[in-house]
Structures are given as C-alpha cells and as structure tokens.
Design a protein around this nucleic acid. Sequence first.
DNA 1: CGCGCGCTTGACATAAATCAAAAGGCGTGG
DNA 2: CCACGCCTTTTGATTTATGTCAAGCGCGCG
Lengths: 261, 261
Amino acid sequence: MPQPPLPPSQPTAGRHTRLERAEGDLQHCLLCDRSRGGLCNGVDRDGLEALAHSSRRLVLPPGSTMVEEGQTAEAFFNITRGTVKLFKSLPDGRRQITGFADPGQFLGLSRSGLYAFGAETVDTVHACRFQRPQFEALLNDQPDLKRNLLAAVTDKLAEAQEQMLLLGRKTAREKVASFLLGRAQAEQTMRGDTPPDPMPVASVPMTRVDIADYLGLTIETVSRTISALRREKLIASTENHGIRLLSPDALRQIATGQGAG
Amino acid sequence: MPQPPLPPSQPTAGRHTRLERAEGDLQHCLLCDRSRGGLCNGVDRDGLEALAHSSRRLVLPPGSTMVEEGQTAEAFFNITRGTVKLFKSLPDGRRQITGFADPGQFLGLSRSGLYAFGAETVDTVHACRFQRPQFEALLNDQPDLKRNLLAAVTDKLAEAQEQMLLLGRKTAREKVASFLLGRAQAEQTMRGDTPPDPMPVASVPMTRVDIADYLGLTIETVSRTISALRREKLIASTENHGIRLLSPDALRQIATGQGAG
DNA sequence: CGCGCGCTTGACATAAATCAAAAGGCGTGG
DNA sequence: CCACGCCTTTTGATTTATGTCAAGCGCGCG
C-alpha cells in the first residue's frame, strides 16, 4: 500500500521510440461514419449530417493531454485508433489510472460540466471530437443514441466495479494476471473478426509506470511479477510490445484467486 | 495488501440489534411517486401510471439479499429508505463493496442481462421494485427518464473513479477520512433541506466488516484508524451509529493526501 | 559512442495483514 | 433484574507482501 510522500508519477514523456502497432486500417468513428454500425451508433440520417458537421478528426502523438481533471468539459471523443489512459490524481502526484480507452471507446462524459478525470494518449491516437453543446443537442434528438450511450456507460460502470475488486482485494500476482487477460481481450475486441482464441496476445502499448498506476502497485512490483510469470512459462514477450499468454487458463485461475502458487 | 488465502468475509447476519435510524418520514420513490420531483424523474402522466402499476413497494430487514452476482437481472430498484451495499466477490470469499446505495439511489441496471454484482441491505430498507421488461419499455417511451438515468449512471461512474483512486493509491488513514466525509455527505443529501454545514455527522449504519470491505482494508486496520482519529479529536461517536466530524477541514486535508501526521 | 530513459534485479524498510486475546453491547432466559 | 453467551469492536504482538532505495542493463538517439 502506498505511503503518503510518494514521488510524483510523471506523465509518460515521449516514447516515440515505441513501434507503432501494426493494426489493420484506420478504424472509423462509431458515431459519425456511415459505413459502420457499432456500439454507439443509433443515429438517423439527419443526425449523421449534424454529427459530421460538428465533429473533427484528430491525430495525437503519444503523451498528448486530451482532457485535464477539473477543466470545463467542452468535448466528447470517440477513439478510432490507439489507446488513451484515463486517470485521477492526488495533489502530491500519486496517480490512479482508472481505465484505458481503446478504439471504439468514447470518452468525455461529465455531469457536472467539469471533467472528473484526466486523459492522455498512450501511443499515437486517432480520435473524433465532438463539441459538447452540439453533441448534447443531438443526444436529445436521437433516442437510440441515448440508449446506446446509456448501455455503454453501464458497461463502463461494471468494468469499474471489477477494477475496484482488483484494487481492493487482489494480490500483485492476481492483479497482473487480470491485467494481461484484460489486454488480451482488448486486443481481440479491437480486431473483432479474425480467429477466436488460438494463443492470445495482450496488447501492452503502455509503460510500466502506467501499468503500475493502473493496478495500484509500483513499477518494481509490476516488473518482478511479470518476470515471475515469464519464468514460470505462463507468458512470453512478443515483438511490438505484446505479451503472449502461453497458458490463458492458468492465468484465469490466478486472476480469480484460485491460482496455484 | 490482502494475501490470497483470506478467510471469507461473512455476509452480515442479523444485526437487528442496531437501532433504526430516526430519519424523518418515509421517503417516496423518485420514479413513481407523483408528489416529488427528483433525480430520476422525467416521466409523464401516462408513464407514471405505467410505473405505478409495474412497481411494488418492499420493506426488507437488515442483511437481506436483493440481488445476487450472476443472477439474471429481473428487477430494477429505487431505494427510498435505508442503505444497501453493492459488492463483488472472489471465489475464496474475499469481497469488495463497490458502493453503498442510500435513499434516492437506483440499483439493478445491467447490460448483459446478468447482475454483475451482489446487493444486500445494511439496515432496514424500503425500496420500490420494477420488473425489468416493463421498466425497459418505459425507458423507451420516456426520453427524459432515459436522460436522467444516463446522468445518474454518469455520476456513479465518476464516484467509481474516485473510489479507484482511493483503493489504489490512498493510505489507510486517507481511506478512512474519505469514507467519513462521504458518509457525512450522504447524510446531508438524504436530509436535503436542513441547515448547511454546522458540524456534520457521518451516517454509519454498516459494520466494521463492511467498512473494511469498502475500503480494501481489514477490520482491525479500520478500527485502529478510527480510534486514532478519535484520539486526535478529529471525530467523536454519536448515539445511533453516527460519527461527528469535529474538524471537517482537517479530515478533508487528510483525505486528499495533504494531512499533517 | 555515450547519454537518457525504461526496465530489471537485489537488499532493506514498513504499512498493513495476521494472529491472539480482552473488552463492550445487547438479547435471552433464569 | 441480573448473568450468561454470542457478536462486534478494540487493542496488542508479530509477520509479510509490497514499497523504497539503489545499482546495473539494454537500447535508441543525438
């Protein structure tokens, strides 16, 4: 458990060094691109036009700040490529990453009018940005959009509850195993099609600092734990900052607290 | 941080012994009672009739199970009196309480059709229950209801993010201070009217076990920490399982990691 | 080719967990 | 009404998982 006077976890600076993930084509925005259906879709022809006019495509380098905690909430985003980290911080710099937003995810809802969290790109991110007033107006016009958004937020809430269980009650080993499984799931969801589950690979574009801040651990503990899993041949590193899950079942056991060892 | 083979945290058995909180009158359901406006209200005359017919009033004793993790999601609740705990568990019995639902709160949304969490009453709870299909039908008819529900879930998500920061990055002392402030806030919200902030009292109807499972600590650590705060004259116990905050500002400092000591 | 940054590994420190026991509350039954 | 018994809570002693401090390594970039 962390001690009060922690050195601030620095925001990840330029990791331009990291290879770009060799994903397929640029993904399209789930909201304003008419060639796709998707989670948040539910927009009729007129709405589509409105969205197309009020939206703007963005390409952001790694380490870009997308929203700042406490800022007035002016925009709503749909991620189309890359990964964004969402986080909350304490005044002394301690930080908790509350989630990673992968392609297809939205980001930027707020009830108070101020963002309750910060968001920063992990790698190069493509996103579609909507101005808040226009987006909210649209929300009122488009009942299906509203329903899909409600469903999406409900999902996020369930994820958050799962993460609370992890943060409050899991050991370091269980946390790391859970994280890897989640990232493998994310990888698979991103590709969507492709074969089901031969030997999954976790997409890990983030640094150890980010992983530690996500799991409520230190980078040393994360590193040691990953090393241990590698030593035990449960995982193996790939090129491209991926981690191959050599024994997903064993990892699942560990992640749910039933792990041997 | 918890170790793997923890003894199961038992669900609170009969604590019928606890005094009933002497709240004012029975609260009304925010959804189906026409005499009030409120968070989730946004229902027209016809909707109100539909709600009134599909809803049922419940009175549940302390320790009642309202929903079970993994169960098919058949109902949606609005709490009108008392406090409910929501939680997730690991197979070996470790448990994380993800939140407490006080009067005015809803509970029971699910996207998958299965509840992702368990819910159990802390004290005597009055609630209004809606059957899921009827509730969902209504949701489609009532755009304002949908919008209010979206806002409510968005709030819950922000709360969850705050709790993740607490679980992952705060010390025991900071966790307890945050908890007490949150409960004082809940107490004030419940009363709604009444004077603003003379010397707040935290409503603490739950046991040490529940507090520990909410904060990701053990009961011993919770007890020791509360004792320390009491020794330091920052808090004092009241009758009725309340805790008076003698120095809310100092507690706020502690809760945000700026605490002296 | 050497500096900086991210990662790993080792040695040691500590906040919180675990183990243990006593003290306080409350209902029950004599 | 009091005494017994079952919980819950508190407090103390000790252990431990994880944090902290400190090198050292690898790799890309200037």
